[in-house]
């Protein structure tokens, strides 16, 4: 019973940071129709920035997250203008291959600069556990990430629902032509969306750098999870992403807890992937049915 409670708590914690990690991937796909193959690499870059800030200047990842968000927002804006804009109207395959190239460049550049070693970021704030009686312990670092994730999700949901720019983003996702006709500057909306999502993704990398091992080629498994979650939840839906991320987090946590021997983490990857295949195969004609635009769930 105690193990089960502990597994569930871990699952919710993992689901929290997965949501934060995956949201950017889902929104970029939903709004721009670009599959960001380099998604995992943006998480990696965020984590490396947090590691650098921590080891060079002693700044906690929790505090460096906001500057990292701003820096990567600018990077994302520039990248969208220089590269992504060129492929946005072309078939998915072109954008997929270009983002594949971006991911190779990013991971190998980081390897060149920082080396291929595994890094783990220490944090004083996020050290230790809260004990829940004798039943279970809650790792503090997961809680911090979960709280930040919830704040970001609420902020993002409010932004998409209430603000003018947020509404423009949803409009652009629903019908690009019509959005242009009513006077939405589609190029600005795309650049802003991409920049925002890259910023959030890098920030999620910074925050989770205390939890997951950081190395140049850490990206692909996270990009894979992003795809699994997006496949389950539908494109660009904040609530759907939260639900699917929680589901995957709980599933992985249960597998890791009850797996025999030390094969837990490997089996968790296998589970995530099995889920992807099952979803894809059961809905081969497209996962999203009547493909939902950004956050249709809000109505």
């Amino acid at each position: 019973m105690d193990t089960l409670v502990q597994a569930l708590i871990n699952g919710i914690a993992v689901g929290g940071f997965l949501t934060l990690m995956v949201l950017g991937f889902s929104i970029i796909w939903g709004v721009m129709g670009v599959i960001n193959f380099a998604h995992g690499e943006f998480i990696m870059v965020g984590a490396y920035m947090a590691w650098y800030a921590r080891s060079e200047w002693g700044v906690e990842p929790l505090y460096s997250a906001l500057p990292i968000f701003l820096i990567m927002f600018v990077v994302g804006f520039v990248l969208q203008k220089l590269v992504v804009n060129k492929v946005i109207d072309r078939p998915h395959l072109v954008s997929l291959l270009v983002m594949f190239a971006v991911s190779i460049i990013m991971s190998n550049s980081v390897k060149l600069i920082a080396g291929a070693d595994f890094r783990r970021v220490n944090s004083d704030i996020q050290r230790g556990f809260w004990e829940l009686g004798d039943i279970a312990t809650i790792p503090r670092k997961h809680t911090v990430v979960l709280v930040v994730a919830i704040i970001v999700l609420v902020a993002l949901q409010t932004f998409l629902q209430k603000t003018r720019l947020g509404k423009s983003i949803r409009a652009a996702a629903q019908n690009r032509e019509a959005a242009q006709i009513v006077g939405i500057d589609i190029k600005w909306v795309y650049a802003f969306t991409f920049a925002l999502c890259i910023g959030i993704t890098a920030m999620s990398g910074a925050l989770t750098s205390t939890i997951i091992p950081v190395f140049p080629f850490m990206g692909p498994p996270w990009a894979l999870r992003a795809f699994v979650i997006t496949a389950l939840s539908g494109l660009g839906s904040v609530k759907g992403t939260l639900g699917a991320a929680m589901f995957l987090g709980l599933l992985e946590s249960l597998v890791a807890t009850y797996a025999p021997g030390s094969s837990g983490s490997q089996l968790a990857v296998i589970t995530a992937f099995g889920l992807l295949v099952v979803t894809l195969v059961l809905r081969p004609q497209g996962l999203f049915g009547g493909l939902r635009p950004v956050d249709a769930g809000g109505h």
Partner: peptide, 22 residues
């Protein structure tokens, strides 16, 4: 179709590497 196939295959790649370890 298209991107789904590409990413599913990337998934199979990661999957089999872990299977070999397990």
């Amino acid at each position: 179709s298209g991107p789904y196939f590409s990413i599913a295959m990337l998934g199979f790649f990661v999957f089999f590497r872990e299977v070999v370890r397990v």
